[in-house]
């Protein structure tokens, strides 16, 4: 149900753009107004989420420790998976954010005859995740060429690397392929693995279909149904300079691509995609395991009713005295 629903929503968006642009001629709405609104929702929304999380307290320092603690000097500590210093935490977070360290640990458990429970290495999810995220990042950065004049050298260099194989005209970008393959694998495992399918919500399929549609429309636009690239750059430059213009004769495929991107941006803050920001605030990863060295203060700590030693001794004094345990009050 979730699959069909999510797929239909993406299709509906595409049809809406076709009707709006080709039919009703609402080019300004789709080319200018929607992008501004989407960007605004994205910025305000993500900021709001981060501020919300940030305003929640961190009462205890509860890192998940993934390696040997720092204790005696002759025992080699794992300073990254079990950090005690800020440097250690920074490295841990870098490994987590840039290399998906925890996902790299992934195992797959299998019950065999015996019974024997075997835990093998399972790196495909990690690989697909890495490929997807880095492809997305590179594609996003490549698109900066539409928003800059002149195009900065790093962006041009990135394009050069991405089209390293120098195949086709226009040159084929490696990331165009890798992002689609990664997305298809992520979709495949969600559909084919019974457990993953069981836990999947419409909100898990929707971003996959959406980003897949964005990638495919982008590919179509570049290699097949080519659009007026000069016109496109007029629109994009108009947007960044706040002097929006809508040139004629840009293919509807461009508006579809753009609107899907706008949908992604506007949807982002309300969805699981906020994990991009949330990972930085995850207390099991961004705190040091140094509670026994440095005290962590709970901002909402409050006094609690306790049973004092005096009450304890009052109850047991006779028994304590009889068995020769020292007491405060004879």
């Amino acid at each position: 149900m979730g699959i069909l629903f999510s797929f239909s929503v993406v299709v509906a968006i595409i049809l809406l753009v076709i009707a709006g642009v080709s039919g009703a001629g609402l080019n300004f709405l789709f080319g200018v107004i929607f992008p501004y609104i989407a960007l605004l929702i994205f910025i305000v929304g993500v900021t709001y989420r981060v501020v919300q999380w940030g305003s929640s307290a961190v009462p205890f320092r509860v890192p998940t420790t993934g390696g040997q603690q720092t204790s005696l000097p002759w025992i080699k500590a794992n300073k990254i998976d079990n950090p005690t210093t800020s440097y250690g935490v920074i490295f841990r977070m870098l490994f987590e954010v840039l290399l998906f360290r925890s996902l790299f640990r992934n195992t797959k458990s299998e019950l065999r005859e015996g019974p024997m429970l075997v835990h093998g290495s399972e790196k495909l999810l990690w690989l697909a995740a890495i490929v997807f995220h880095y492809s997305f990042l590179i594609i996003l950065l490549r698109h900066m060429r539409f928003f800059t004049v002149p195009v900065p050298t790093p962006i041009e260099f990135l394009e050069f690397i991405d089209s390293f194989f120098q195949v086709g005209a226009p040159l084929v970008y490696i990331t165009n392929f890798t992002i689609v393959i990664a997305l298809l694998y992520l979709l495949y495992r969600r559909l084919a693995m019974p457990q993953i399918r069981y836990i999947s919500l419409p909100s898990d399929y929707f971003p996959l279909f959406l980003i897949l549609a964005i990638a495919i429309t982008g590919i179509i636009m570049r290699y097949f149904e080519k659009v007026d690239i000069v016109g496109v750059k007029q629109i994009t430059m108009g947007l960044v300079s706040f002097r929006p213009v809508i040139p004629d004769n840009i293919g509807v495929i461009f508006y579809i691509h753009l609107t899907l991107v706008c949908t992604l941006f506007a949807y982002f803050p309300f969805s699981k995609l906020v994990h991009m920001a949330g990972i930085f605030l995850s207390p099991t990863r961004n705190l040091a395991n140094n509670n026994r060295m440095v005290r962590h203060v709970n901002p909402w700590d409050y006094p609690v009713k306790v049973r004092s030693y005096q009450e304890y001794e009052d109850e047991f004094r006779d028994k304590m005295k009889k068995s020769g345990i020292p007491v405060e009050k004879e």
């Binding site: 999380w53 999810l125 457990q195 994990h275 949330g278 995850s282």
Partner: peptide
């Protein structure tokens, strides 16, 4: 908020 239900 941030679970993506990757199933790891």
């Amino acid at each position: 908020d941030i679970c993506v239900r990757c199933g790891a």
